[in-house]
Amino acid sequence: MAEYAAQGKMPEVLFFVGCAGSFDDRAKKITKAFVKILNNANIDFAVLGTEEGCNGDPAKRAGNEFLFQMQAMMNIEVLNGYGIKKIVTACPHCFNTIGNEYPGLGGNYEVMHHTQFLKSLLEDGRLKVEGGKFKGKRITFHDPCYLGRANNEYEAPRNLLEKLDVELLEMKRSKKNGLCCGAGGAQAFKEPENGTKDINIERTEEALETTSEIIATGCPFCMMMMTDGVKAKNAENKVEVMDIAEMIASADDL
């Protein structure tokens, strides 16, 4: 983004990569897949790069409002400094926090989840998606809590899957009733409390019941939890966990 600013240009959209998308090996693949799609569709976009910081969601949900607001204000300073208007992110946590909680602290942007953004590209005819290798495949979609219940977006990811001509199989608990993967509320950074089962195992079992070949999701943290769940169930050769952006990128063989 600094380069854009130096040239006095303004990108169409800012891609807020997020911590997982920047550092987690699995999530980085989602980042790259999404960037491939953006490049392929000739979208003029920028990233903050080293000027980006954690949006503060895990700190806030863990109860550390100070740390959250520090992070938020720093990001807002940077974003406002560049005059950013529109943000897209591949992480529902960044999406929710920046979209819902930054306005109260002086950060007002149009924020889109990457599935919403891709859907809008399709509608505008700037992106074409064909089923390719996913045509007819049995696929279930795991609703990320911070995209679904938190912000009522259930259709954008499903619309994209429909475009891939997949056979969409819903889990018993989906959409409004979707079961959390177990990562939210800063749980991703700690061991779970004592119980009879881990949440990601419960959710993975439910996904496996659908006999899907792919578990699709739209969140790097759900990705981690579901991938771990699939490993724990020794189902790696039966089912793959993929982000919708990865599916679209690989369907088009980008």
């Binding site: 219940r149 938190a150 959390c180």
Partner: peptide, 10 residues
């Protein structure tokens, strides 16, 4: 133990 998933609220 809460994951802030909002299922209870829903």
């Amino acid at each position: 133990a809460c994951t802030t998933c909002n299922a209870c609220v829903e």
